[in-house]
Design a protein around this nucleic acid. Structure first.
Length: 1050
RNA sequence: GGGCGCUUAGCUCAGUCGGUAGAGCACCGCCAUUACACGGCGGGUGUCGCAGGUUCGAGUCCUGCAGCGCUCACCA
């Protein structure tokens, strides 16, 4: 920093209150201009890297993201200041299904749908949406002060990421870890796409158990099946019974006539079937309570039935169209006249009609209400349909994926032991190095991987990474004619595979010419170069796109230019330097969705962990205990809070809420745009049972004036207009941070005003502080800096906020600044210490409150007169670039801490009397005290006089002055004189009586302890001794107080 | 149903190795003291969810129960 620029920062320029809105923009501009946060792999320092969990581009960020990013920024700034070569990689996620859905919803408002456009035109529309929200999100991050390397901002569908995705898919395909399977998928009939297991949400639904009678084909009776989904009976291909069921023998070999359809279906025996409790089934199994012992088997519409079908070679009859309606065009051939009436019905309508049919035909035995959990699409919120279709899968159950993820876990965080087959897997760099904070979340990770199923990665969407596979279907012999041409393809850029259509099983290419039946010939291409030729030969590119998490899983690789950083500008060296990264900061639900997949992919593709630590933070809930989410629309825009309280205030408050036990509840208010008044909105309950702010709110000042709530705008229920503007949110919770930032501002302003008057240059620095209060302040600083280091290392961020709050407010403002007021202007050494403490404080605070500290930086640096030896605070042009304070352990001064604690206790005791007796603040009083107390007062160097409002200190007199008030202190009696002009004997008696009662209560507790032989014998001697000492003190206090009371004639 | 959390002041939350409970806000007094009213000084407030157990001693450890949240499973 130049002298000239220092001179321009005059203390007089600092306004009386910190105004974030005026400071933040300028600070951000200075950081950006200086490119403070740009990471260069060639630079010095231990690498410290964080990958942002890329926010999806469906909507703007809410406070949950602000929380997540405040913590990441804290970590990034702290480590940067500690000299680490720090990269915080920013970016956004394309969020395939979510983003496509919001755009489709927007089109619906215009009366259009996706299929009115070409694929390219629709993707163009989504792209526009993405551009808008990507800009909004990046702007929000900047507004929050995030120290991301924005030069390196990535998007999961940009060229760099797309290249990584393509390479990853190709590699997995080549290695046999991607396969095509005909399976039941979780099908969303509204968005008409497959969903991964974790995209399905279970919701409690009131349904029924229907008991349907299926007649035996030979007319000899019937069996009764129970079902909650009678509409699927159209696709039944068997009824199963447990072989142990006593009725099974008589039914062996018999057939049933499926009602409505007329299909003749077998009775199969399978021990999967639960027997009813009455037939010897386990009464503890809830299924045994309502099961009939006969299970209808619908392989095409139920996962378990599919498995039974596989075991008994049953056909699968799919009776539904992709939109969930009953259809005879997707695998159902034997439609009877009776059944035709149901074709075309929605699944809901079909259910009603089928139940009615059974009832009308005397085949409905019973119907019982039943509440159960049903899978719903996390996107469209309709029940998911198990649906038979061809999809692409990643074989994550392979040891190369699942096994490596489990072996990555820190040994001490593994519950029990890893499964034997996993434990014996090949060793690899990073094994045992993945650690979760808090540790309990390791279990989620472990359980997920131990029970993982193959991952369905194809999605029937238009927005996303298109699957790079070209397929031709036909008779094997016909397909074989292509083999020659395909063999000529460069094997490093193309992989060919063949699969039987009926079951998706792989077939060796060499066996294809001789194979019978329909086959698929799949060609996976690393790039599109050969695509046109394939299409010319009748191959068709797969229309589907990849699950969004496929690209997210590559984030720590793709953002660094994997597989070949050298092909991108300015990315050389990134991968080596910043992968593995240091920590991933995210929320619980992401452990399975994202953390798991990043670990598997990073280890598979690069042989390394993507990150060493996983920090899982709490969830931000609204005032009603509901998680803030983009889809619910109850999220609060961080820009609203920045507007009402400032960015630092928001950050400080969020950091203080980062405890590692509970989720955080944040009651939210609305700011009336008409009057500026803050009020509690009118709440309404949504159909799903959530409590949200009504979309349109009335001004509390003038109910005729309306406004749109954040919920209204986020859900599109109401559109803001000039007359009905969007109302910002706010929350009184952020007052904490705002007050804190303002306190720091004013303390610094005041300190500067004391220092700028000084002309004393301190050459060589202050050797060792001599005044108690200076020694104490530096000891507190030393303690705080260690506490901050610990809090950050343990990811216990609320401790960081608490430590900073106590340091600045309690120690620095309440005691240090007040205590040195009389002396600092004339004491050069103290000035140097004050200036150094100010400087150090800004640095310690910077990771949490970057804007206010940066705003004060120049002014504080300008008044530094000299160094305090042992407190290294090297100059830096910006606080963001300053070094973390190196506080010498020699400042840890237990004696000063102990002695100052006594000073504080004495001052508190005097103030308490002053407060109770309502002594005017300006009034100086007299302290009459024994030698030990006067020695303490003297050692404090005037601090007691200043803080307690003492005029003078005198020895204890032999006779108590008439107007004096006695207070017990450390077991001796201290008198205060001159409190009031005339003593109020009654008030004084009351005060003393209360004090005696308090002390008696304490004494009783301690005596009963000491009277307990067990306590004295078994408790640690130091604890017993401490109790004795305290009791003696308390008893002395009582004697003193009683003496004073007696002197008053009480 | 399995698993993981949580239940502490009116509110939002801390509470480390077991030693008689803390913070911020809110509330009540007093204070326009020349850093800050986004402030200062002082004040009251608790069957630590319930019931047992271990221990000289339990908010803290153990068991059971209740309620809340998340998560996995469940469409017989």
């Amino acid at each position: 920093m130049s002298e000239a620029s220092a001179a321009t920062s005059k203390p007089a320029e600092l306004p009386k209150a910190y105004l974030p809105s005026e400071a933040e923009g300028a600070v951000r501009a200075r950081w950006d201009a200086a490119r403070c946060f740009h990471a260069e792999p060639s630079a010095q320092g231990e690498p410290y890297a964080i990958f942002i969990p890329p926010p999806n581009v469906t909507a703007a960020l809410h406070l949950g993201h602000a929380f997540n990013n405040s913590l990441q920024d804290l970590l990034a700034r702290y480590h940067r200041m500690r000299g680490c070569n720090t990269l915080w990689m920013p970016g956004t996620d394309h969020a395939g299904i979510a983003t496509q859905t919001v755009v489709e919803k927007r089109l619906m408002l215009q009366g259009k749908k996706r299929t009115d456009f070409t694929r390219e035109a629709f993707v163009e529309k989504v792209q526009e949406w993405k551009d808008e929200y990507e800009a909004t999100i990046l702007g929000q991050l900047k507004g929050m002060g995030c120290s991301c390397d924005f030069d390196r901002t990535r998007f999961t569908m940009d060229d760099t990421c797309a290249t990584a995705v393509r390479h990853a898919f190709f590699t997995l395909f080549k290695d046999g870890l991607v396969y095509r399977g005909k399976r039941l998928v979780n099908w969303d009939p509204v968005t008409q796409t497959a969903l991964a297991d974790d995209e399905v949400e279970m919701e409690e639904v009131d349904g029924h158990f229907w008991y349907l009678k299926y007649p035996l084909a030979d007319g000899s009776g019937h069996v009764t099946v129970a079902t909650t989904r009678p509409e699927t009976m159209l696709g039944d291909t068997a009824v199963a019974v447990n072989p142990k069921d006593p009725r099974a023998v008589a039914l062996r070999g018999k057939k049933l006539r499926l009602p409505i359809v007329g299909r003749e279906i077998p009775i199969v025996e399978d021990d999967y079937v639960v027997m009813p409790a009455s037939m010897g089934g386990d009464p503890a199994d809830p299924k045994a309570q309502f099961a009939t012992g006969f299970l209808k088997v619908t392989p095409a519409h139920d996962q378990n039935d599919w498995d039974i079908g596989q075991r008994h070679a049953l056909p699968a009859v799919n009776v539904m169209a992709p939109d969930g309606s009953i259809s005879d065009r997707h695998g159902w051939m034997d439609v009877s006249d009776e059944a035709r009436a149901f074709v075309g019905l929605s699944r809901e309508e079909a259910r009603k009609r089928i139940v009615a049919w059974f009832k009308a035909n005397g085949l409905l035995e019973d119907a019982k209400p039943y509440r159960h959990a049903v899978g719903h699409s996390y996107r469209s919120h309709v029940p998911v349909e198990p649906y038979l279709s061809d999809q692409w899968y990643v074989r994550v159950t392979d040891d190369r994926l699942r096994g490596t993820a489990l072996r990555a876990m820190a040994g001490d965080q593994v519950e029990g032991a890893l499964p034997a087959e996993v434990a014996k897997g090949p060793a690899m760099a990073g094994d045992g190095e993945l650690r979760f904070f808090p540790a309990r979340y390791a279990k989620n990770f472990q359980m997920w991987h131990e029970n993982i199923r193959d991952w369905c990665i194809s999605r029937q969407l238009w927005w996303g990474h298109r699957i790079p596979v070209w397929t031709k279907r036909g008779e094997a012999s016909e397909l074989a004619s292509h083999l020659g041409a395909l063999a000529a393809l460069d094997s490093t850029r193309a992989v060919v595979r063949a699969a039987r259509v009926v079951d998706g099983a792989d077939v060796a290419l060499s066996a294809l010419p001789a194979a019978k039946g329909e086959h698929d010939l799949h060609v996976c291409l690393l790039d599109d170069a050969q695509g046109a030729a394939l299409e010319g030969a009748g191959f068709r590119r797969d229309p589907d796109v990849l699950d969004t998490w496929f690209s997210s899983a590559l984030w720590p690789l793709s953002t660094l230019g994997w597989p070949d950083p050298s092909r991108w500008a300015d990315m050389a060296g990134l991968l080596e330097r910043y992968n593995p990264s240091s920590v991933l900061c995210t929320a619980r639900e992401i452990i399975t969705l994202w953390v798991s997949r990043m670990v598997m992919f990073n280890r598979y593709f690069l042989g390394r962990l993507p990150f060493k630590h996983v920090f899982i933070h709490a969830m931000i809930q609204d005032g009603h205990g509901q998680k803030m989410s983009k889809s619910l629309g109850n999220g609060v825009d961080p820009r609203d809070i920045i507007h009402s309280h400032g960015s630092d205030a928001m950050r400080f408050t969020l950091v203080s809420m980062a405890t590692n036990t509970q989720d955080v509840r944040l009651p939210v208010d609305i700011v009336d745009p008409h009057s500026g008044e803050t009020f509690t909105p009118k709440w309404v309950t949504t159909s799903a049972g959530y409590t949200v702010a009504d979309a349109v709110q009335a001004s509390p000042k003038d109910p005729s004036k309306k406004m749109v709530s954040g919920f209204g705008a986020a859900t599109g229920v109401a559109t803001p207009t000039e007359a009905m503007p969007l109302a910002r949110n706010t929350s009184a919770r952020f007052d904490l941070g705002r007050n804190f930032a303002n306190k720091l501002w004013n303390a610094t302003r005041f300190a500067i005003s004391n220092l700028s008057a000084s002309t004393v240059p301190a050459a060589g620095g202050v050797a060792a502080p001599s005044a108690l209060i200076d020694r104490w302040m530096l000891a507190r600083l030393e303690l705080a800096s260690r506490e901050l280091d610990r809090g950050i290392a343990d990811y216990e961020f609320h401790r960081v906020a608490e430590t900073l709050y106590d340091l600045v407010w309690r120690d620095f403002c309440d005691w240090y600044l007040e205590g040195i007021k009389p002396t600092v202007r004339g004491d050069a050494a103290q000035q140097a210490i004050l200036a150094a403490v100010l400087d150090a404080q800004l640095r310690l605070l910077h990771p949490v409150c970057p804007f206010v500290t940066e705003t004060l930086w120049d002014a504080v640096r300008a008044i530094r007169h000299g160094e305090v030896r042992g407190l290294a605070l090297p100059a830096a042009p910006l606080c963001a670039l300053a070094a973390w304070p190196a506080v010498d352990g020699a400042f840890a001064d237990a004696e000063a801490l102990g002695q100052f604690a006594r000073v504080q206790a004495l001052v508190d005791a005097i103030r308490k009397v002053r407060g109770e007796r309502q002594v005017q603040p300006k009034r100086r009083i007299v302290l009459l005290a024994p030698d030990s107390v006067r020695a303490l007062v003297a050692a404090a160097g005037g601090v007691v006089e200043t803080m307690a409002g003492l005029e003078r200190v005198e020895p204890s007199p032999s006779a108590r002055p008439a107007a004096a008030v006695a207070i017990p202190f450390e077991g001796s009696e201290v008198l205060l004189d001159g409190l009031v002009d005339a003593v109020d004997a009654d008030a004084e008696k009351a005060r003393l009586s209360k004090l005696i009662a308090e002390r008696e209560k304490q004494a009783v507790g301690m005596r009963s302890k000491l009277d307990n032989a067990g306590y004295v014998a078994k408790a640690p001697p130091a604890v017993v001794e401490e109790t004795r000492k305290k009791l003696a003190e308390v008893e002395a206090d009582i004697v003193a107080a009683k003496g004073a009371l007696a002197a008053l004639g009480g």
